[in-house]
Amino acid sequence: MQANEQEMVAAVSRGRPGSHEAVMERYGQEVFALVVKLVPDVLDAEEVTEDAFVKAFRNIRQYNSTKAAFSTWLCRIAYGLAIDRLRQRRPPTLRLEELNVSGEMGAEDEELFIEEADNHQELLHRMLDAIDSLPPEEQILVTMFHLENRPLRDIAYITGEREGTLATRLHRIRKKLHQIMTDYDKE
């Protein structure tokens, strides 16, 4: 943990005036960026993010710097609250594991290809549609891994899942996306 991050955590746990706002200012955008990917309604996402910080401040003594960076710990809390909010708002979705999508590969160990279209933007829109068809929990996994380049270890900490399980899920999600894209080509 960086020195000033350590100081920041210590200040919050001592209740130093202004320390909460400082934490919010430094990590607010990162946490909100995670939450808004799961909870697309901006007002809901703001509320979840605020709740995540309040919960973090109340439980600041439970933070263990040897397990994860402070920002990762905050994201873990926010992820849990965002998933709770999602479950309140929508009917349960079928998890990918329950579908008959084969594959037990790791997160990085298979390269899939898509045939380029005449119009690249059209291909991009098809991929966007395919991503949107995934449940939010799967969207956030590919986002954290492929867009934010978070290590699998951190994603596992945030989501509370094992690294091996996550690697398999990511592989299956990619296969599912690939299947959607290639099926579209055949139509």
């Binding site: 960026a33 390269e111 898509i114 045939e115 279209a117 990619r174």
Partner: peptide, 25 residues
């Protein structure tokens, strides 16, 4: 037609999907 790596396309699509996110944040 060329084949393009799906991961590249996926990343590009995600960037487009969340292009507004920094401003929202």
């Amino acid at each position: 037609k060329n084949n393009i790596p799906m991961n590249d396309l996926l990343r590009e699509a995600l960037q487009k999907k969340y292009a507004q996110e920094p401003r929202l944040a």
